[in-house]
Structures are given as structure tokens and as C-alpha cells.
Design a protein around this nucleic acid. Sequence first.
RNA 1: CGGGGCGUAGCGCAGUCUGGUAGCGCAUCUGCUUUGGGAGCAGAGGGUCGCGUGUUCAAAUCACGCCGCCCCGACCA
Length: 512
Amino acid sequence: MQRALSISRQNFPEWYQAVVRDADMAEPSPVRGCMIIKPWGWGIWERMQALLDARIKATGHENAYFPLFIPLSFIAKEAEHVQGFAKEMALVTHHRLKEIDGKLVPDPEAKLEEPLIVRPTSETIIGDSFSRWIRSHRDLPVLINQWANVVRWEMRTRLFLRTSEFLWQEGHTAHANSEEAVEETMRMLEQYRAFAEDDVAMPVIAGEKPANERFPGAVATYSIEAMMQDGKALQAGTSHYLGTHFSEAQNIRFQNDSGELQYCHTTSWGMSTRMIGGVIMTHGDDDGLRLPPAIAPRQIVIVPMLRDKPEDAQVLEYGHALVKELSGKFALDEKIRVLLDTKHIKSSEKRWNWVRRGAPIIVEIGPRDVANGQVTFMRRDMLRDGDKVKSQAMARDEFVAKMPALLEEMQKSLHAEARTRMDSNIRSDIKTFSDLEAYFGAGSDDDAGEFKGWVRAGWAKPEGAALDAVDARLKALKLTLRNVPADGMKAGGTCIFGGGDAKEDILIARAY
RNA sequence: CGGGGCGUAGCGCAGUCUGGUAGCGCAUCUGCUUUGGGAGCAGAGGGUCGCGUGUUCAAAUCACGCCGCCCCGACCA
């Protein structure tokens, strides 16, 4: 069968790259590890920004912007934080170039007195501002978010999933006490969960990260974990309760109502362009990307069948009228986003380009549609019937009237499909470490592409050296601890790592 | 940074072992035909064969060095 993509999901990593390229989302840059985000990929990011930004504002936060450069001394203040990021920091040391022996080199006389780091995250520089902004309990809480780029010098990069420079939003808040800060941490975790499930149609499991997976400097880290179509877990958003670690390091204090000086309790939380990689691996198929309507830059793309003949004009006129009608309608609480693709390339080529890009509804209109007052269209989420592409004709008025409901249905159906896949691939019946080894093939690579999902098991929540030992045993199986699901203990029983009675459930999976 | 693979036209690849001056499919351009749909025929354009140095009469092919990409590790959102 002819597919829109040359590589199938059987070769998952290659398939992923093919989608990124063939769906016109992004391409590698001349700088190793960075990426050029092309209009279609950027359009998806803009949709995510719009939807998540609305949630961030609806929960009382304000956007602001802090600098890209951070004095080196700032990052050194919080011990764990430094340790966490030291290995992947980009540094600015000079402010001028000079030509020496015909080569442009950093001018030795233009060395910065204090080197600057390119932010890997902004806790320290925002904390510095907070220390000046906050004086009294009346100033609290401070609820700030910023949309920014950050740089982490990664060893191994993949477009969207892990790039040296990536885009994200980072929320930073300061509170009078731990209760309020923890509440904020959980509130934003829930916003990420809802954003992932409702807007991105990506089912996730929200929960607390085990101690060894915590953000450097955090008291507690929470995440949402999504299951990709190869069974691996993707951390798609994180929310951290930072306690007073950063406020103590940066002197973020306030006077309480009794006049005493106290340290603030702070939080931070982020969602990045990695989410786009999650969309690909959650919804993509062997014909390319499939976009949930809520995050599709164009929800309906109309391809006119042009033949360089007089009737082209009528087809185009019909198309323009259709655009006007559809874009006046609402779906998923927003105006429907429609495109009439008038580009002068072969109609068939256009159709397959939009299939690869994952436009939810692809409409084709030709002279006969015009004459009959109808449209022919395909649903990208149900593109094929067996091997054949499934397109259907519908009276134009009926089509226009049905679009809002259909787009909403597609949003739900993509979510349901992914939800079923995730739910049916989380096993709770694996109770011992030897069963875990047997399931994941004892760490060998010869599991021959067989789908391996996640394991949810009870554990005794070991700490310190005992936790490191568990981590090492899992590493041998290429497994990691993902999170402790927030929905309580379901697997329970005895600890899968042999530590006695289980205290809570833990998710175990291979991960990105 | 370690182990493996790879780098030849926009994309996918052959040619490399055994050195002789670059090819195939798709895409692109032109013309004609076709027209409910991933069209047919004919012609054309496009490549410092990743980069450099060496060996040789001659290098995509051999040697050495470097760079980049992919997979698996280490690290991580």
C-alpha cells in the first residue's frame, strides 16, 4: 500500500524524524543540537502557547520577562541547583571579537569581569528580583510566568524532544507558607494535566517524582507522564515545590503580620516545545502527523482541484465562499481556522502534504462539487478504510453545519484512542522484580520491537542508598521510576523491589 | 565521551570490496496528452561524491586526520 510517509512506525526513531521533516515542522540548524522551527511547527507551538497561557492567566498569574543572561555568581548560590546544571551550561566570557592573524577571535582585552551564563532555567535571576519586590506579607503571593528560550548543553539531542536551546514557559511564584506553595504546585500540575488531556488530547498520569528524579534544589517535583506509541514514557510537564531552598539562598524574605522576618516558600513549573514531540509520538500514524483540532494551526484545509481551465474560477470562488462561511463558525470555543490552499502545485501533491502535516479535515472541491453544491472531505483521524483513503461527499450546507461538532468529536476521539492505548498498556499484575525482568527482557535488546508499556507496582518508597540501589537495578533493564500516581494506591501489595509492604504505587517505564 | 552504523542531486538509494572521471527511483523545469484526483509520453536542469591531507598517470572508491548525522550507553525537560 502506498503511504504518505516512506517509513512506518516499525522503525520508531526513524519514523519520528520522518514526520518532523515531512510534516514541515522543523529542521536541524547549522549549530549542533539546535533547531529551526518551520511555520507549521511554530503554528502548533503558538496554539499550545495560546491555550496554556489562558490557563495560566485564569489561575491568577501574570506574564513578565527576565533576561537571557545570568551572572555566574547567581547560579552558584543554591548548592544542589549548581550541581544539577553545571555540566550543561553555556557561558559568555567576552564582549568583542578581534582579528588576529586573519582570524576572528575573542578579544583578550574584552573579557567580561564576571562571566555570564545563558539561562538553563530562571529560578536564580527571578529569585533575585523577588528578593527586591517582596517586603511584606501583603506583597504575597507573587505569581509570575514567562515565555522564554533556555539553553542546556545536551550531549544527545533530538528535534523537539531534546534540543540544546528550547522554548518553554516557566512559572515562578512566592508564598507566605508551605501550605499555599504546595497548593500552588498542585494547582499548576492540574493545569498541565488538563492542558495535556483536553487541549493536546494526550492522556497523562500526574504524580510525584521519586527523590532521585527531583529538580535540582526542589523539595518535591511533580510531573505528568505520557505514553508514546513505542511504550516509552515522556515527561510532558513538571511542577516543583521549592520550599525555602531558593529563598534562603537568595534572601527572599517578608515581614509577617507579627513583624517577624520569614523566608518565602517558592514554586516553579514548566512546559516546553518537547510537548510537540509528544504530539507526534502520541497521535502520529504511518501517513504522518495527526493533529487534535484544538492545537491544529488550520483545522480545515480546502484543496481546490484546479486544472488551468475556465471552470477554475468558479471552483476558487466556491472555495473562498466556503472559507468565509466556515471561519464565521465556532468550534472548541474558538473561531474555526480554515485555509484555502491556492498554491500552484498539483492538487494530489497538496492533498498528501496536508495528510502528512495532520490537518484534521482535508476538503477537496472540484467542478462537480460546485455544480452539485457539495464538498468531498477526509477526516485525518480516520483517513483510511483498510488500505484505501476514505473520502466522503456531503452537501455543502450540511458540511458547514456539522463542522463544529465534528471537530469537537475528533478532539475527543483522538484522546480516547490514546487513552485506551495507555490504559491497556499499564500492567499492575507484575508483582516481583523477577517478573519485571522477565517482562522487559532482562535488559537485553532482543525484544524484537515487541510493545512494552509501563508497570504500575507497589513499592516501599526506599530512600537514600536504598533508592540508589533500586535505581541501579532498574538501569540495568533500561528502566526508570516515572512518578507516584496521584490517584492513590491501586497496585499495592508488597514492594516490587523486595522492601516489605508497599507504601504507595510507582510507575516504572522506559523513558525519553 | 564510549560501542555500532552512516555521509553520493531536494528525498530515498546503488556504485566503494576489485581505483578509470557518477547513476537509479521519486521530486523539479519545459512541451504535448489526460482530467473526480498520489496521471501518461518526450525532453531538460540539478552533484566541489561531508571536509582536508596523502598515495597514484588516475580517487566517490585506497590510507591518515577531522567534521556531521543516526542507533545504543553515560546525562537530561
